[in-house]
Computed example of a mutant assay.
Amino acid sequence: MSLIGERRKMIILNQLNAKGQVKTFDLVKELGVSAETIRRYLEELEAENRLKRKYGGAIKINLGAEEPSYLNREVLNAEEKRRIGQAAAELVEDNDIIFIDDGTTPLQMIAYLTNKRHLTVLTMSMPALHALMDYQTKGLFTGDIYFIGGKVNVMHSRVTGSIAERMASLFHVDKAFISIDGIVLDKAITAFDAERGQLVSKVIDNAKSTVVMTDNSKIGQVRLFKMADWRQVDLVISDVGRPPGWESTLDEHGVTWIEAL
Rank of each mutant, 00 (worst) to 15 (best):
G5H: 03
H118D: 15
M124S: 13
D101T: 06
G161H: 04
L224Y: 14
K23Q: 14
M126I: 08
R82Y: 01
L185T: 02
D144H: 08
R50V: 04
F177E: 12
K187C: 11
V222S: 13
R158L: 13
H253L: 00
K187N: 15
R39C: 08
F147Q: 11
V152M: 13
S69T: 14
V240T: 10
F177Y: 13
S125V: 04
A18Q: 15
T114D: 02
P127E: 08
D96C: 02
P244F: 06
N153M: 11
A65D: 14
T249Y: 01
N49G: 06
V222I: 13
D239M: 00
L119G: 12
G20S: 07
A191W: 02
N72D: 15
T123S: 14
M124L: 11
K116I: 04
K116E: 12
L16G: 07
K52Q: 15
Q198V: 02
N115S: 13
L71Y: 10
I237Q: 09
Q221D: 15
T104H: 01
L129R: 04
R242W: 00
L27H: 08
K54Y: 09
V222C: 12
I100L: 11
E80H: 01
L122T: 05
A18I: 03
M109C: 11
Y70A: 11
V33S: 11
K226V: 05
D144V: 04
W246T: 06
V200R: 01
L119P: 07
D215W: 00
S248Y: 13
Y135G: 03
E79R: 03
Q15I: 09
K202R: 14
F141V: 03
N95A: 08
D102L: 06
V212S: 07
S125F: 03
E6Y: 01
I59V: 13
S157M: 07
Q21F: 15
P106I: 05
L42T: 05
S238W: 00
L107R: 10
D174C: 03
T137R: 11
G57K: 08
L261G: 08
P106E: 14
E252S: 11
L107P: 04
E46G: 05
L45C: 06
E79N: 05
V28W: 06
H156M: 09
Y41S: 13
D193V: 02
V203S: 06
F171S: 07
L199F: 05
L42F: 05
N72W: 03
I100T: 06
A58R: 05
P127Y: 06
G85W: 01
L113K: 04
